[in-house]
Design a protein around this nucleic acid. Sequence first.
DNA 1: CGTTTTATTCAGCACGGTTGAATATTGCCC
DNA 2: GGGCAATATTCAACCGTGCTGAATAAAACG
Lengths: 187, 187
Amino acid sequence: MLNKTRGRPRGNPDTKAAIAEAARVLFLRHGYKGTTVRAVAAAAGVDQALISYHFGSKQGLFGESLNLLCARPGALDHALVGDRAGLADRLITAVTTLWDATAPTENRMALQDDDTMRAFRDYLESELLVRLAEFLGGPDATARATAAVGVIGGLIFTRYLNPLRPIAALTPAEVRRVFGPALRAAL
Amino acid sequence: MLNKTRGRPRGNPDTKAAIAEAARVLFLRHGYKGTTVRAVAAAAGVDQALISYHFGSKQGLFGESLNLLCARPGALDHALVGDRAGLADRLITAVTTLWDATAPTENRMALQDDDTMRAFRDYLESELLVRLAEFLGGPDATARATAAVGVIGGLIFTRYLNPLRPIAALTPAEVRRVFGPALRAAL
DNA sequence: CGTTTTATTCAGCACGGTTGAATATTGCCC
DNA sequence: GGGCAATATTCAACCGTGCTGAATAAAACG
């Protein structure tokens, strides 16, 4: 696209990382649909085709550049150790700290397109739910984990994805107080 | 597209309604992104251009063909009369019957449309929340109503808007059993 | 050194939403 | 009732998007 000579470049620049970084910024700012492959390529100073080459598809780019952030594996891990009594509070705290950090108020609505939803869903379903059930143990572990995921999903939805003013305005401590009983009941 | 003579057709066929109906079916079956304007036009037996003409845009079509179903006002009203003990169950039942009816089993769609989200949010915020707080009464009525809306929002989100398989697969009775404790705790 | 592998640009395809022009029908007004 | 604007429709084309295959140049490896 831009007169950079064809063929492999000199040195070994980590172009893939550069693309991923540019993509991360743009995805957070404009959402999935609002970010074109060409725009990412331009921001990274490379040709559009490189994205397909390195990441296979726009989906792949999205996953590799953002999943680390949103569905950061192990982000909730330290909530899943310790006593059962404090579990609910630890989970809520983990959720609020994680999301309050990654989504700085303005850019929350950008996470509303369907591909983000899918990534998020997969995370809740195959990561959080099974881990929780594992941690809980017992006969109705799955049912209780399901209920808990429902409550946590509700928190994330009503506070971050489609923020209701009264819920988004709460401080983390208030969130704990408001959602705590429900989550404890679910577990 | 198909050799139908150009210009205005005979009689006054309600083509706009036909398009909306075809769109409703396809949107429910394939979701927003998976439904092309051309496909809707073909299903309705008209030219693609007509949908821009009648609805302005694909978004507009989406809104007009589906919004009526989701934001049905007063749908939860009869849950808000009666004793406090059965309130949680009545609310959950109202939600499941309402949404199970509008989205035929398998193909729950992802409502990622901005306008739909906003309408839904406004409904939860200014209808359900204040009504609930009113019904509950007492000093911390608002806090408890907020928590309840969070739980209900979680149910709707994880079962209908962005359906997690384990939750979407539950029967209404199971939903009551799983979400009941959390909602009762919130109230 | 020669060969294979890898990283890159370039040109272009296929598809999706939208638009402007052409055209036929209805509905209104005198 | 006849003329004329408004309306509803098709057709053809545009522009942006994600993606792909060919060409090419540097690196990696023997």
